[in-house]
Amino acid sequence: MAATATSLPIAEHAHPDPVHLKRVGLWLFFFSESILFGLFLSARFFLEGIEAEHLDQALGLGITIVLLLSSVTAYTAETAIEHDRRGIAIWGLIGTILLGLVFAAGVGVEWSTAEFSRHEAFGTVFFSMTGLHASHVVSGIVLLVLALIQLLRGRFNSKDHWPISGVVMYWHFVDVVWVFYYPALYLVQGV
């Protein structure tokens, strides 16, 4: 089967939509990260069962609602830029960043007022789980700020907005982690 250029069909290389490829790659990354979070969650039950020390329930519920709200604003920002509504997208991102900062501050308050120490088992799981999660919140805020700066400079439109979609997906993922961590730390022992 000696090949010549003319006698054979010329095919196209597989060119999947680059955004789709990145989306799947990001999901694979989340899949992997969720194992890390899952193992810390398992460590909590392995060491402590459903036992817990006293926590500020009002604060816990408050920051949970704040983080869920930030997901709503992030969704609003992404949907807005998909429809070229730049103004709403900008405010959506700003809102997400602010709510994220409030959440991080709330975790900080919880840390400084906790009545247990990190040297004991419940403290170990509480501080490591919230710390691991908070480190993702902080990196998410940094990424949101980078996206916001570019948005303010006039980049992104309905055809080209993957960085915003990607960052927003990451933010939602961080929220999903908290959806599991919150009841496991605050609620499972009974309020």
Binding site: A43, F46, L47, E48, R118, H119, E120, A121, F122, G123, T124, F127, S128
Partner: peptide, 15 residues
């Protein structure tokens, strides 16, 4: 100084 594996403080090396 956390106690994942410090049995004295409620941790467990088997983890």
């Amino acid at each position: 100084g956390m106690s994942f594996f410090n049995a004295e403080a409620g941790g467990d090396p088997l983890l």
